[in-house]
Nucleic acid binder design. Structure first.
Lengths: 165, 165
DNA sequence: TTTAAGTAGATGCAGATGCATTGAAATACA
DNA sequence: TGTATTTCAATGCATCTGCATCTACTTAAA
């Protein structure tokens, strides 16, 4: 094998050494924390770019519609959406407002509670889910899954589970 | 932030986690993805609650000031802050605007580039870092670190590294 | 039953974010 | 050199979020 020393090689060497040092260095917990925020934010925004590029609404819309589909015909109370998605009450209220305006869901009076409403998926919402799914899936594949093997994804899943309430 | 935690949400998650464990179901990549978003959002909002409770500004302010301190006296270009923190350009621009208004940083003309500015930490900013640090550290300890041991935190750090650009 | 306390959901307002665009300066390039 | 392209940063505008509060209804308690 032949080695050639030039500026680029030196630069590469310096970089790898730095990387090696970084690897040996055990990151403190603040670095893990910071990276959790950076990485999840970065990947989310990249996934959202895919959706926007195809003219789709934000991911939050998809998530709500998906919960509604899982819930079946009776729909969900806003307060349930709030708990499942860990959203603030006023955000749920306004997200639903937008979904109603866009005709993706219906809002009905809750049968057993005069204060509440039931939010139900409309066929238009179901159709949106269908149309968004392949794009969403592909985006997550490219921006997230492609960087992890099966086992890593599962490890990540387990570790993140420890952080959930 | 848009995540809000309460006792019922906690119960809901405890239940779903238990079920998942019972099922011994190997999560697909979408579940890892979803959990990344849920968990990081949930923990972030809980950490922010600590800061707000003590009357401190949002975490983003701290992060920028910290980068500026690391950069030393010469300061940083907005475009560098943008890259380090993975923020959108207009968000950096406006965050700096707020930090200037709050007297935590200075904005000077960049010496070697007529288009640019240098953002420099002021003593007031340094003081804010000092005051926020114990609260921030404690918040991350309680809401994040307490749920992971040393090795788990490092594994998480490594896995998340694969997702960074 | 009457009153008090709690819960579901909406909303006014202020502040933050996203998008598109602008102006100015640097760089590329013919 | 002169023109085209790219980069840095700011901003007008619309939308979204966070906070506090409000109304309406339910539940608990006397």
């Amino acid at each position: 094998m032949k080695y050639k020393i030039d500026a680029d090689a030196l630069k590469f060497y310096a970089l790898t050494m730095t990387e090696n040092l970084k690897d040996r260095h055990s990151p403190d917990v603040m670095e893990s924390w910071a990276r959790l925020q950076r990485a999840s934010g970065a990947v989310l925004s990249r996934v959202e770019v895919h959706l926007k590029a195809e003219g789709f609404p934000p991911l939050g819309w998809y998530d709500v519609l998906l919960e509604l589909r899982r819930a079946g015909g009776v729909g969900l109370r806003p307060v349930d959406i709030e708990k499942r998605m860990l959203l603030a009450q006023y955000n749920v209220s306004r997200l639903i407002e937008r979904l109603v305006a866009a005709s993706y869901v219906d809002k009905r009076r809750a049968p057993d509670d005069g204060r509440g409403v039931m939010v139900c998926l409309r066929p238009e919402g179901e159709a949106l889910l269908e149309k968004m799914w392949p794009v969403y899936r592909e985006a997550v594949e490219v921006e997230f899954a492609a960087h992890l093997d099966e086992e890593e994804a599962e490890t990540l899943w387990k570790l993140l589970g420890k952080l959930l309430p």
